[in-house]
C-alpha cells in the first residue's frame, strides 16, 4: 500500500491541547515579571506608610535625621544624592562623549575596537571593587595631596572650605563619575555608530573638516541618543550604592563644600536598614527607598525613550 492510496481520516482537536497549555504556561511566566514590578511598588509603598502618616511632607523638607529621637527628615540624603549625581554627570559627560567620538570617528578601527571592549569590560567591574579602590587608594590621595592644595589656593570659595576629609562629597562624585563613564561611553558609541554613513559623507563633500563633520552631521543626528545615554548614566549614579557608601563619609550634612563628608539616599539605606532601631525608623528608610525608586524609574523611562528614538530610526533608515 502506498501513502497516496490511504484516505485521510480527520483527527479531532483535543479540548486542551499542548499548545494551549504552553501558551498559558509561558504567559504565566511573562506575567510574573509584571507581578514582580507591581509587588515591588506595593511593598515599598506599604512599608513606607507609617512614615508617610507620621511625617507627611515634612519628611522631604526636614533636615534632622535622628533615629533615637524619632525625627526623620530626609533632606540631607536627597540633597546629597542630587548634588553628587549631577556633579558626577557634569564630570562624566564630556569625557564619555569625547571617548565615544574618539572611538567612532578618529581612532583607526582596530584601536577603537580595543578601547571599546576595554570600556565594556570596565562596565562589568562590580561596584564594591570601585569602592574598595576608592576608600583605600583614592580617598587617602585626595586627603593628602589634592584637597590641601585646593584649600590653600581656592579655599576662599565656599566649595573648597573646611578641613581635608578624604572620605568626602568630592570622593563620592569622582567614584560615581568613574563608574558611569563606561556605561555612558558604551551607549554613546552605539548611538554614534547608528548615525548613517551618508550623513558623514554629505558633510565631508561640503568641504568640512573632521571636527566640522562631527559638529554639523554626527552630533546633531545622535543628539537625543547621547542625551538619553547621559540620563541613563544619571539614573545609575543616583542608584549607585556600595562604592559611594564606602567613600562619601556618611554624614548627614547639608554643605556647599566638596570637601565635607556627605550622605546619599542609597547609602543611608545600606548603612541603617539592617539595624533599624524601630518600626518608624525602617518605615522612614522604606520611604527613602520609595523616593529613590520613583526617581530612578522616571529617569530610566525618559532615557529609554530618547535612546530608542535614535537607534530605531537608524535601523529603519539602513534596512
Amino acid at each position: 500500500m502506498t501513502e497516496a492510496d490511504s484516505r485521510y481520516e480527520p483527527e479531532r482537536r483535543r479540548p486542551l491541547g499542548g499548545d494551549t497549555i504552553y501558551r498559558w504556561l509561558t504567559a504565566g511566566f511573562g506575567l510574573l515579571v509584571l507581578a514582580i514590578l507591581g509587588l515591588m511598588l506595593f511593598e515599598m509603598a506599604q512599608g513606607s506608610l507609617p512614615s508617610l502618616a507620621k511625617s507627611g511632607w515634612s519628611f522631604i523638607s526636614g533636615k534632622d535625621w535622628d533615629a533615637v529621637q524619632g525625627n526623620f527628615g530626609a533632606l540631607p540624603f536627597i540633597f546629597g544624592s542630587v548634588v553628587s549625581a549631577v556633579l558626577a554627570i557634569l564630570v562624566a559627560t564630556p569625557l564619555s562623549v569625547a571617548t565615544a567620538l574618539f572611538i567612532t570617528e578618529i581612532a583607526p578601527k582596530k584601536v577603537g575596537g580595543v578601547i571599546a571592549s576595554l570600556v565594556e569590560l570596565l562596565a562589568a567591574i562590580p561596584s564594591v571593587i570601585y569602592g574598595l579602590w576608592g576608600v583605600l587608594v583614592m580617598a587617602p590621595w585626595l586627603q593628602q595631596s589634592v584637597q590641601p592644595w585646593l584649600i590653600d589656593h581656592l579655599g576662599f570659595l565656599p566649595f573648597f572650605s573646611g578641613a581635608p576629609f578624604g572620605a568626602s562629597r568630592m570622593a563620592g562624585v569622582l567614584i560615581q563619575a568613574i563608574m558611569i563613564i563606561p556605561i555612558i561611553t558604551a551607549i554613546c558609541r552605539e548611538v554614534l555608530l547608528a548615525v548613517p554613513q551618508s550623513q558623514r559623507e554629505a558633510a565631508v563633500a561640503l568641504g568640512a573638516t573632521k571636527w566640522e563633520m562631527i559638529r554639523i552631521a554626527v552630533l546633531p543626528y545622535g543628539r537625543s541618543g547621547v542625551l538619553g545615554a547621559v540620563i541613563l548614566g544619571l539614573g545609575r549614579a543616583i542608584g549607585e550604592t556600595m562604592a559611594v557608601t564606602m567613600v562619601i563619609g556618611n554624614s548627614p550634612l547639608i554643605s556647599m563644600s566638596l570637601l565635607s563628608p556627605a550622605y546619599t539616599m542609597p547609602s543611608v539605606i545600606a548603612n541603617e536598614f539592617a539595624e533599624a532601631t524601630n518600626a518608624l525608623h525602617s518605615a522612614a528608610l522604606m520611604e527613602i527607598g520609595l523616593i529613590l525608586l520613583f526617581v530612578t524609574l522616571a529617569v530610566n523611562v525618559l532615557a529609554r525613550v530618547m535612546i530608542w528614538s535614535v537607534t530605531r530610526g537608524a535601523k529603519g533608515g539602513v534596512a
Binding site: R7, Y8, E11, R13
Partner: peptide
Amino acid sequence: MLDSHDIYERSIDPVAIRRK
C-alpha cells in the same frame, strides 16, 4: 477539502492536518 473532509472545520486539529 482533503478527501472530502473540511480541514478548516472547528473541531479539526491543525497540527494533525500539517502531518498529512
